[in-house]
Design a protein around this nucleic acid. Sequence first.
DNA 1: CGGATCGTTAACCATCGGGTTAACCGTAGC
DNA 2: GCTACGGTTAACCCGATGGTTAACGATCCG
Lengths: 104, 104
Amino acid sequence: MVNDPFKALSHPIRRGIVERLAEGPATVGEVTGGFGVSKPAISKHLKVLEETGVVKRVVEGRTHRLSLEPDVLSVAADWMDRQRALWGRLFDVVDEYLKEEGSP
Amino acid sequence: MVNDPFKALSHPIRRGIVERLAEGPATVGEVTGGFGVSKPAISKHLKVLEETGVVKRVVEGRTHRLSLEPDVLSVAADWMDRQRALWGRLFDVVDEYLKEEGSP
DNA sequence: CGGATCGTTAACCATCGGGTTAACCGTAGC
DNA sequence: GCTACGGTTAACCCGATGGTTAACGATCCG
């Protein structure tokens, strides 16, 4: 069970799926094409994305319609905001450090 | 050799190291405490962060002073900006989709 | 010099991740 | 009913990851 967004997005194919889904909902079959891997491989990636809550799946007959989950997306976005705030602090701290070290 | 920032940050200990370093430069020993793993383990994580370019190492005598690399941080920040832009689009697209589906 | 300290490297081990193929399940359509 | 189709599950393989302990290298200090 994966619930770490960074880990969920650490694989290029999963990021690719998210980007694909960003252009609109799609079925598993539609998502599968273009990554050069088999269906079961995509199925596993989708499972990870679903467990993390990034992707929502609606079964319509025998096809599965995939879309991105807004609520969890906002959580992920918040997380990224916190990270960016951290990076920002890093800039300041490192900058200050370099100033101290660079011209003593 | 790792150069994927997401992959580099996909491990909680490595994120912990980055957060620790966000509070100011530190030596390997200072970073090591608090994660409950051995020095070699930390050494490996540091190697990954260094290869990715997130962390810079300056050898001062027998101690190594670690700090965060501003240039690469900006690259990572840009990457996150792009991701956030993507998330933003996702919101719009999904929202639109839900509107179409929700009230036909 | 000799010992303590900071940190890495080496060798090894267990687990995880991501891929495959083959078989299966449920639904659609004839 | 039977076949075709969309997709998952099962069993398996292999390389990567993350951890350990033990040994080593280099530097400081008495």
